[in-house]
């Protein structure tokens, strides 16, 4: 394959809390631990996982809203992880971001015109007139009426506001879009409209997506490749059809089995007991081990590496070579015994 457009190499992000007045510094929250992902041109890579698994932190690290603790983010051959000022702004032209909450990501005091013109004026150096002209074209691209340029964000519904968020991200004709749960705050019928829009934009403009979501079905619909994250690490990675049709990792299996579906009433049986462990105090060995239905003694002793099982289908599990679906319902007592603490 050709060179990736964007390469995430060994990225970690730890958040350290402030020192308490008396006593020791609390251990840092290990939000993202050693992630490696490649994004090829025209790709759409989905990152799925439950809340708190580090998806959004990863996304924000990639665009530079927050700096990584260590690791490289390589865009077209050069590391952009620690760029600042003018060089950082140069990168914003090529890599843009769509936020989860369409209303809080638009300044209530600005008109749509001001919001859409800002990147063109600041990043491309266009004058107001030219920016205005292109803002109209942008509105057209996201299927909004150009008259809406004069409006303020509060005058829009969630779906319309998200279209504006997408238009803002497209203002500089970027190559890569990082989309952080862009449809999660939307209603089902509106979500479908936005997904449709994202698909047509991708093929019309030749975009490359890194699409973050907790919704496996949405990711399966939009993405060709998928990475499943748990507790800051990638558990499984590969093409959508391999991940969703023949998952190798127990966690992916559990996620799929947890989706309630009208066809299978018994899906309400618990497939996974307990809560997500505290990311400031991850369990030893495999991160999934306290909740895993296949866990053995080995799993708490060492951390399984992400190994390629062919055709780019990678999994981080000692037993990934012989995958097994989860039992219908794990022992109830297990649910009681093994819940870990999550604070805050």
């Amino acid at each position: 394959m050709s060179e990736p457009v964007l390469s995430i190499r060994g990225v970690r992000k730890y958040f350290s809390e402030r020192r308490r007045l008396f006593g020791s510094t609390p251990p840092p929250i290990q939000a993202v631990q050693n992630i490696n992902l490649d994004l090829y041109s025209g790709d759409s890579l989905g990152v799925v996982g439950e809340s708190g698994c580090g998806k959004s932190t990863l996304a924000r690290t990639i665009v530079g809203i927050i700096p990584p603790t260590s690791g490289e983010i390589v865009y077209r051959g050069s590391d952009i992880a620690s760029l600042k000022g003018r060089e950082r702004r140069e990168i914003y032209k090529h890599i843009q971001f769509v936020f989860q909450d369409p209303t809080s990501s638009l300044n209530p005091r600005k008109t749509v015109r001001e919001i859409l013109s800002a990147p063109m004026i600041e990043l491309l150096g266009l004058d107001k007139r030219e920016a205005e002209r292109r803002a109209q074209a942008l509105m057209d691209k996201v299927n909004m009426r150009p008259e809406f340029l004069d409006r303020h964000p509060h005058e829009f519904s969630g779906g319309q506001a998200q279209r504006i968020g997408i238009a803002r991200a497209l203002a500089t004709n970027p190559e890569v879009l990082i989309l952080d749960e862009p449809v999660s705050a939307l209603d089902v019928s509106i979500q479908a409209q936005i997904l449709q829009l994202l698909k047509s934009l991708k093929s019309d403009l030749g975009l490359t997506y890194l699409f973050i979501s907790h919704d496996l079905a949405v990711v399966d619909n939009l993405c060709d490749r998928v990475a499943v994250m748990y507790l800051g690490s990638v558990m499984e990675e590969g093409s959508a059809h391999r991940i969703f049709d023949n998952p190798r990792h127990p966690y992916t299996n559990v996620l799929l089995a947890s989706i309630p579906h009208p066809d299978q009433h018994e899906t309400t049986s618990i497939r996974l007991s307990g809560d997500l462990p505290n990311p400031a105090d991850p369990p030893p060995g495999c991160p999934f081990q306290p909740r895993c239905y296949r866990a053995t003694a080995q799993c708490s002793q060492s951390k399984p590496a992400l190994i390629d099982y062919g055709s780019g289908h990678k999994a981080a599990c000692f037993y990934a070579d012989a995958p097994e679906p989860p039992p219908a319902a794990p022992l109830e007592s297990q649910a009681v015994a093994e819940t870990a603490d999550v604070s805050g």
Binding site: G159, S189, A192, Q196, A217, D220, N221, D224, L256, H261
Partner: peptide
């Protein structure tokens, strides 16, 4: 019809227009 399902890979979604 417009709720995506796992396995409906890349299927065109027939979104309900409007609000």
């Amino acid at each position: 019809a417009c709720v995506p399902k796992v396995g409906s890979r890349g299927a065109e979604m027939d979104a309900i227009p409007g609000l």
